[in-house]
Design a protein around this nucleic acid. Sequence first.
DNA 1: GCCGTTTTCGGCCCGACTGTTTTCAGTCG
Length: 570
Amino acid sequence: MVNQQIVQIFNRIADLLEISGENPFRVRAYRNAARTIESLGRNLEEMLKNGEDLTSLPGIGRDLADKIREIVETGSLGKLVDLESRVPPALVELLKVEGLGPKRIKVLHEQLGITSLEELQEAAAQGKIRKLPGFGRKTEELILKGVVLAKKEGRRFRWSVAESYVEELLKYIKKAPGLEKVQAAGSFRRKRDTVGDLDILVTAGNPGVVIEHFVRFQGIKNVISQGQTRSTVILQSDLQVDLRAVDVECYGSALHYFTGSKAHNIAIRAIAQKAGLKINEYGIFRDNKRMGGREEQDIFQAVGLPFIEPELRENRGEIEAARAGRLPGLITLQDIRGDLHMHTTWSDGKYTVEAMARTAAAMGYEYIAITDHSKRMSITRGLDEQRLMEQAEEIERVREDVKGMAILKGIEVDILEDGSLDLTDQALSTLDIVIAAIHSKFRLSREKQTRRILKALDNPYVNIIAHPTGRLIGEREGYQVDMERIMEHARENGCFLELNAQPARLDLNDLNLKLAHDNGLKVAISTDSHNSDSLLFMRYGINQARRGWIEPRDVINTRPLDKLLKLLKR
DNA sequence: GCCGTTTTCGGCCCGACTGTTTTCAGTCG
């Protein structure tokens, strides 16, 4: 929590400094520090308590370390209070308007006294803005449109949703005359759980023709810009799409550049710079002589590094790991041997045990676990001890019918408010696998919620904690827990955490997965399927796992059945 | 405000697009 608070304060300071026309590099320093903290995976408050030196963190020097200490100790920051007293805080929201940066906001504020989106909209509607120096009719129109978008700003699309747009768009773009290559880059290629906009890279003999074709896509609401090598449009869904066209000779360098992340690119370029090289989207240059850039690999080669998978490119240690020859061998879909979390008609699933087993067999799995809800989840017709026994009989029958598929008897048992479980130990003892999950009382304090899960982990039959933070992407924050403590306790008890592969959950997230990877805690990647189609959600889980540096050995359901069963015996 | 096996000062990624300029500033990614 403290980390997130610090991230917010630093980003806010950066915004305020930017508007007041401060040195842009100082602004960047605050943003860099915020990004470092965001992807830290460790609690700054605890680091301070342990007497650790925060200036060893990248982008954090003496000054920012002191400011972090001030926030931890007092809950606020004098510098922010001071800035907010000098700059109207509402001006910050004007930065969200497309086309408005610090300079123009300054003019709008000084000349027209504008301090909020509403006032901006009013001034634009009254035609006051076009009269300002450096502004004109077009800018005013852009602002009017931008204000509307800014008011619903912050919207990100789940990766799985973005994927459907990408498929449709690529299919259309491929019809462009003279098109050579087309590839979605950006956060989509890095497989982030959410995508803010789409970056699409093309190569073509005549890029102008491809861009002409692109802006005529029927799903477009608004064309923001259209040039010879790039174009930006807004789709009906408000998803922004940036198309960039380069020569095929530049494909590799452009792909690296447009894949990002920004932080990763900056770090790579800094290395190149020290070696006397210049890297941009057109290639690698030494003294204006082009050294390569046709393949993405050329970029890494130029800075003396092995290829780094797109999912790792967040400047979260991948460059150091690459240099040390310690990049993870990332998991792939082919490594998965079974699915350990799914529901059937016994609770809120739509398909029978047999139907799920047959679909899993067709996918080439060796095993599945049937894990319906327990009785507390009455809305799902959760199982009590009696129905659990009846289900066991059915599972045994299906085992006979579906040869070659091991069907584990399991449960997704509710963790009650006090950390006890919703079924008796006697009932749990009859099962092959026990997944415990929180479905109620999301708003307990961090301490209580943590203890609740720690206690569940102490039950001798629990193997896995399902969707460990309970977040629903874009809908609900996760519940507050001390993830480091939970992971430590899980590891000590021979338990595992789940990476729930539902596209709306993807819980654990990438940072927590990396924490698990770094601490030697194994995870289960499971689809939590409620119908047989969603067994295919496994690939979303794999995407997320790769972002979290997860290797096959970090995952229990990459094991053959006998090894898996050993792991499930605590 | 950060950073340094060329540097403790003087750098900090860099090019495209737009609009309002008459040669470029502002913004964006």
